[in-house]
Write a protein that binds this DNA or RNA. Structure first.
Length: 311
DNA sequence: AATCAGTACAACCGCCACAAG
DNA sequence: TCTTGTGGCGGTTGTACTGAT
């Protein structure tokens, strides 16, 4: 369903500036654009807009096509796997949305940007810290991401990847089969069959512990894009296995006592005294007990979080 | 039922890089 | 070298939707 299509094209909500239309696209405009691109291909958006009979700017046409009409778009909720990848890639590259989107087939930079702003930044706000602060990065790296890995693992163990807050908005493209070899959309199959399709992640060096989270160097990764049969396996191979995050996650996985480990991590005394553990700085200064577990964190996340705090 | 606040997402804007003339 | 057109990107805004009160 597209809310834009529910409007009358002649409604006064739409602004007509000279010959150019603005505002939500109508079904007729979408059809014009889709048909024209199908017949003539993408590019030359300004002339395309004129030739197709669209009273839109080339920019508007391009955006509409890339963010909404492209046939290979993956629609529906961001899965835990995708969330994990977004968090990891953002920790490396910052707000390089298009770059991040390149590693999430079928997702647009706009979608990822919206996800970040509406959900991730929301939690930074709740934690009363800046989303770019080291504290928040630590929370993501040592609390949020491991939890996502755990959820992916659990979903894998249950026989099928967990749908994150699956709702009516989900389409077949976002179904768990998309992550299974032989299932899902064309792009995923391409990536799974050809790991080199993500060259930056396939570049492999193993300098354990040396990679900077924000580094653009892209060191040490063996992407597989396989189904999340084991969440930690999927993550550590998809992302940089030499990064501190992945190393910690992998260690937790190998111990098969991940929950206990993270419970320890949450104890102030532990992370203040153990040189083995990552320096979490002043994470404990957060009002972490009031962390809102809605939207991103599910109810069982809340339970886990409470247990982890030893409450 | 009405109102309100929060959420999700489509769309626009301004800036920048690049290529062609 | 300068100008212009084009495409790409990140930031921001507007609004429909949803759930709580």
């Amino acid at each position: 369903m597209d809310m834009a299509h529910e409007r009358d094209a002649s409604s006064e909500e739409e602004v007509v500036a000279g010959e150019l239309r603005r505002g939500p696209w109508t079904v007729e405009e979408d059809l014009l654009l889709v048909n024209y691109v199908a017949a003539h291909g993408e590019g030359r958006w300004n002339s395309l807009a004129r030739s197709a009979g669209l009273r839109r700017t080339g920019k508007s046409c391009r955006l509409r096509w890339l963010n909404y009409l492209r046939p290979d778009l993956r629609r529906g909720n961001i899965t835990p796997q995708e969330q994990l990848l977004i968090l990891e890639l953002h920790s490396r590259w910052g707000n390089r949305w298009s770059k991040i989107a390149q590693h999430l087939p079928g997702r647009t930079d706009n979608e990822i940007k919206n996800y970040w702003r509406t959900r991730v930044q929301k939690h930074a706000k709740q934690l009363k810290c800046d989303v770019n602060s080291q504290q928040f990065k630590d929370v993501m790296r040592y609390l949020w991401m491991p939890r996502l890995v755990e959820r992916i693992q659990n979903a894998g163990a249950a026989g099928a990847p967990q749908q994150h807050k699956a709702g009516a908005a989900d389409t077949p493209l976002s179904s768990p089969s998309s992550w299974q070899p032989g299932g899902g959309d064309h792009h995923h199959q391409l990536l799974m069959n050809n790991p080199a399709a993500v060259p930056e992640l396939s570049a492999s060096t193993t300098t354990a512990g040396s990679a900077s989270p924000s580094s653009d160097s892209g060191a040490g990764a063996q992407p597989c894009w396989l189904a999340p049969v084991g969440g930690a396996e999927w993550f550590t191979t998809t992302c940089d296995a030499s990064s501190s995050t992945a190393a910690v996650l992998l260690a937790g996985h190998q111990q098969q006592q991940q929950q206990q480990q993270w419970s320890c991590l949450l104890g102030e005394a532990t992370w203040a005294s153990s040189s083995e553990l990552p320096d979490l700085g002043c994470v404990a200064d957060f009002e972490i007990g009031s962390f809102d577990v809605e939207s991103i964190w599910s109810t069982d996340d809340s339970l886990w979080f409470t247990q982890a705090q030893g409450v």
